[in-house]
Design a protein around this nucleic acid. Structure first.
Lengths: 230, 230
DNA sequence: ACGCCCTTGTGAACACGCGCACAAAGTGGG
DNA sequence: CCCACTTTGTGCGCGTGTTCACAAGGGCGT
């Protein structure tokens, strides 16, 4: 998704590793909550569903934080991964689109607890202005530039209908936002230096459907009453 | 996400290609709506943000559906991709969790129009039972097995809190569901033969934060007033 | 103090996906 | 009928990511 220009090496941490660090982080926090002090790569790999060698190589990109014969100290590793991901500082996020999805995002608990602060929830529809969602009052889209500027927003979330997405994106970029998380089913056009990540619910379903069809084809002879398409 | 066992080649279509087919499909449908009859790989690649050679190679996995010197016939390609993805048949989907996210999903327009039918929206909380969402009445989670069986559900969507996810997943699997789309922030444990795809909003944000931090580090000297963390 | 056992960190082979660049193939004009 | 032009389909080299397998290193019991 992200790398049209592959960026000059990101201080050497591979993109694939970056994508897995949040997963490790979440598992480690669960271990920490249970009072577990150390964990081996084998165990952590199992609970996160990756190969243990891959996990060790991923972590080795951050430094040598393990102890041979013992494993990794949970709290220390949490801190190191958080620091690497930039979660030891707070990030302001603005969400545009106060429909079902925008509200779901604003209510999503994972944000506040992990270094993300929702600075504003904006919408173009005057009918929803002033609605209170997750302790936030829905603002008008016209305030976008003000909010970005005043609250130092660096990450913009687009949860609008497809037709509005590009315009919102342009306004985000123009206002100085350099990272965009896009839920609208369109490919956004952005200048170099701006990162876009896209989440598309219907694409995920279509990928599942593909594999489901394969299974149905392959097992048809063995399992004539298996769950198939309707 | 999917391949612990890399599956015996999926009839030869690479996973990376499968993940892009829905994107092409969406762009093609947009062209079709505008009455455009043929499209070149160059043009389609541009609107979907991929390399044109990659696009041609992707399409070549489905067969030789283009005409040299002309391009691809839009309608025909739509049909071929739809067929390959299994969208020419209807799939029943059950959503568990009628919170903000579950409702957003049920209301998501992209489903019905693309071969997916929402068979049920279930929740454990009796307070929301009977609520009407997207023309559907919220049912009780106890009806899960019945619904899966009666409606031939093959894809289950989990939009519950993290703690409930594994149990819901187990019940889905036990009832015969072989594909799961998981929005809860946990790694699900499933037997072989069951596909799981995970969408995690906070992970996406964390990846963006990582790159944002890199940008802030690298450009700090050049752009002391650039948007940084709060 | 020594040696056994466990786990990390990594070298090397392998697999996969990407993109260039070009030959093959079809179109349309003259 | 032929030629110039366009666009597909793909062979190939390259870079990235994954996995195996093992040497290096640290703890712990004796």
């Amino acid at each position: 998704m992200t790398p049209p220009e592959p960026r000059p090496r990101d201080r050497g941490i591979p993109e694939a590793t970056v994508a897995r660090l949040p997963v490790y982080l979440r598992a480690l926090q669960a271990l920490d909550d249970r009072g577990i002090l150390t964990v081996s790569s084998e165990h952590l790999a199992e609970t996160t569903g990756v190969n243990s060698a891959k996990l060790r190589k991923d972590l080795s990109h951050l430094g040598s934080y393990g102890t041979r014969g013992v494993g990794y100290e949970v709290e220390y590793l949490i801190y190191q991964i958080s620091r690497e991901l930039g979660l030891t500082q707070d990030w302001s996020v603005a969400i545009v689109g106060a429909g079902n999805l925008g509200r779901a995002l604003a209510n999503y608990g994972g944000f506040g607890t992990r270094g993300f602060r929702i600075a504003a929830l904006l919408d173009a529809d005057t009918a929803v202005l002033g609605d209170t969602v997750a302790g936030l009052s829905v603002g008008h889209i016209d305030a976008l530039e003000d909010v970005v500027d005043r609250e130092n927003v660096s990450i913009g979330v687009i949860a609008t209908p497809a037709v509005a997405a590009q315009e919102v994106c342009d306004r985000f970029v123009e206002a100085g936002v350099t990272s965009v998380l896009n839920f609208a089913p369109v490919v956004l056009n952005v200048p170099p230096g701006v990162d876009v990540r896209k989440v598309d619910l219907s694409i995920e379903l279509q990928i599942l459907a593909f594999h489901e069809q394969r299974k149905a084809d392959g097992y048809a002879g063995l399992d004539p009453f298996g769950k198939g398409p309707v």
